[in-house]
Amino acid sequence: MTLAIIFVVFAVLALVLILRVTVSRALQVSSRDNVTPGIEPLDVEAFRNLVDASENAYLHRRLPAPEFRRVQRERLRAAAAYIRVSGRNAAILVTISQAALTSSDSQTVEAARQLIDSALLLRRNAAFALLRIYVGLAWPTIGLSAAPVLLGYERLNGCAMLLGRLQNPTVPVRISVRS
């Protein structure tokens, strides 16, 4: 009987998920005109400092172990916040570039395709980096490896600028505060 209950609960949850996806898809189709990108600019310089290995080593040398662990946890939490923002931005750019794939201009389509690839790669790397950070919160001494996210974000920035330029040559585009 317990097994039956487990399966029924799983089936109901799955059905709710499927219905939710269906409804959200229908809403997306009907309100596509009102899509407003909610890209949150990211301070790349601050992000770079946070994930800098030499900064890490310097803090490790200069601070007593308990103090270093405390500071490192703070840094990891801050890095996680940056990575979450970069992942969200990547998701928005996937939506934007998928819309651009229907363009009649082949250059725009190519730029959109590159942007999708970069954004998906970044989102994938962001998930792995977040996992590492959550492990790092338990063992702060293992260090932070978010370089692929940072590099990916910079590449994404370039692709987004190119697509923005092709779509609307008069309007500049960026997704980071400074570099």
Binding site: R32, A99, N168, P172, V173, I175, S176, R178
Partner: peptide
């Protein structure tokens, strides 16, 4: 048959954009 509208990327400061592009 929805004509997908061009969803433009957000506007921003031209100088910063140029600097970013130069760095890239």
């Amino acid at each position: 048959a929805t004509v997908k509208p061009k969803i433009s990327l957000p506007e921003n400061n031209l100088a910063v954009w140029n600097r970013e592009l130069e760095r890239l």
